[in-house]
Amino acid sequence: MKHIRNFIVRTGIRIPLIAWAVIVLYPIIWMIIGSFKNNAEIYKDPWGLPETFSFQNFVTAWNEFNIDISVFNSLIVTVLGIFITLILAIPTAYALERIRFKGSGALFTLYISAMMIPMVLGWIPLFFLLMKLNLLDSIIGLSLVYAMSQLPFSIFILTSFMNSIPKELEEAAAIDGMSSYGILLKIVTPLSTTAIITVSIMNAIQFWNEYFMALIFLQSEQKYTLALAIDFISNETQYTNAWGALFASLTIAIIPVIILYAIFQRRITKGMTEGALKG
């Protein structure tokens, strides 16, 4: 009796699970398929399969809608952002975790609470600050802003990881006469590779996807990141009807994320749940 009931429950529970999986997957798959259709097909049968697979939309998006430049810009922002974040976060995380000093707790709390503050208020003065520093409408300026936005999260993940590294290695190195700088660079940083990779993947996804700060701090089309370029194409479709190119650029935007997720699924979910637990 119990077995039969269990079987029914388990089958019944699968219906909502499968339904939600379809709701999640269908639009994404449809978008990717749509990028291979021509406009006529999109209008005739928007949610069906294409009759012929064509890469024309990708060519159009790439050549006529500046997607080539914006992919390049997004790549630069992402890589530069990751790099700046690491340079700033690793030494701070190490000092906060390993060196005893007055105010270390307060400083840590200050960084962490910045994760919860709505930055939208700060964006107005930041806009004028960047203007003064000649960093407005600049990929470098945006990378710096991005790095600062992910700094608290990165410090948090790195400190909690460094906490799990045994102190003995550092102590042994110090006895051998290695300087603190050497220990940080040659012992702690390599030992923290796991956390550094996790943080960098999370930041990569964040920077690659980011939209609103780019909207505020970039102005000329030549500087657009992918998210901005797509938003621009989307807003123009009512005049250009370039649905195919829009789908193609959405696909270009999502594929790196899918690849990262396929490779680093565990790290990404762990990083995000840890970040949320702290927030």
Partner: peptide, 25 residues
């Protein structure tokens, strides 16, 4: 060493995160 680790990061954090918030006020 402590200053080397903390000060550059904190200066940038102060300029690009703290200052804008207070300045917004």
């Amino acid at each position: 060493f402590l200053a080397f680790c903390l000060v550059p990061t904190f200066i940038l954090f102060a300029i690009f995160t703290l200052y804008p918030l207070f300045s917004g006020l």
